Amino acid sequence: MHRTIFTTPGVSTLLRGFSLAWLRLAGWTVQGRLPPEARKSVFIAAPHTSNWDLPYTLFAAFALRLTPYWMGKTSIFKFPFGGLMRWLGGIPVDRSKSNNLVAASAEALQVADGPVQLIVPPEGTRSRTIYWKTGFYWIAVTARLPIVLAYMDYPRKLVGLGPLFTPTGDVEADMAGIKRYYAQFKGRNSNQFTHE
């Protein structure tokens, strides 16, 4: 995996202090910690309903000492912001091409020589959507890694890491259980998030 702001010596220490202070001043509470067995894992990022989710996610990642990478549409990686987005942990995804993103992501996680957490929003968009995409699930299954149920709740100003979820291979039952867990959280634009 490429070097990011989270793996740049000195910078990551300074930004962790800044993130903790900023979240505290803004009234947010950071909960949970990353268990050792999840140093390589797939993160669900939900609810994802606002552009504000990215900065809050980055602040929380520093506070929790994570090594996150996230997927974003290719348009945000264009000049002049492409280098910055990659340094923030971004991986461009071209949604117009039918390439095997699941296999490529799983392989990248398996061969990474250090801790790496791949953050994937199951809705795939900030807009309202009824169906969750299952890419995060199949990446975890293929890479044989746990799923971390990460959350952000705007009304209560909570951000953190929930329990680990080990996929069984029964995608319908597993997705139903995951969605039940997320029913307790609300995004910034709560009408755009569904856990049904």
Rank of each mutant, 00 (worst) to 15 (best):
H2W: 11
T4E: 09
T7P: 04
T7S: 15
G10I: 14
V11K: 11
V11G: 10
S12Y: 10
T13W: 15
R16V: 10
R24W: 15
A26K: 15
W28I: 06
V30P: 00
Q31Y: 01
L34K: 01
P35S: 03
K40M: 00
S41A: 15
V42G: 00
I44S: 03
A46M: 06
H48D: 06
P55M: 05
T57D: 02
L58W: 15
L58C: 09
F59Q: 12
A60Y: 05
F62E: 09
F62G: 08
F62S: 08
R65G: 09
T67G: 02
P68R: 03
M71R: 03
K73I: 12
T74W: 13
F79Y: 13
L84T: 14
L84N: 11
M85N: 04
M85P: 00
G89M: 05
G90T: 11
I91M: 11
I91A: 07
I91K: 09
P92M: 03
D94S: 01
D94F: 01
S98C: 09
A103E: 11
A103Q: 14
S105H: 00
E107W: 05
E107T: 09
Q110A: 13
Q110L: 12
Q110H: 09
P115L: 01
P115W: 01
I119N: 06
P121C: 04
P122S: 08
E123I: 04
T125D: 12
R126L: 13
R128F: 15
I130T: 14
Y131H: 13
Y131M: 11
W132I: 11
K133T: 04
K133L: 05
T134Q: 11
W138N: 10
W138P: 00
W138G: 03
I139P: 02
T142Y: 05
T142C: 07
P146L: 04
I147P: 02
I147M: 01
L149M: 13
A150C: 10
Y151V: 09
P155I: 04
K157L: 07
K157Y: 01
V159C: 03
V159A: 08
G160S: 06
G162E: 08
P163D: 06
P163V: 00
L164G: 01
F165D: 00
F165S: 01
T166Q: 10
G169L: 07
G169K: 06
V171E: 10
E172V: 11
I178E: 07
Y182Q: 10
G187A: 02
R188H: 14
T194E: 11
T194W: 13
E196P: 14
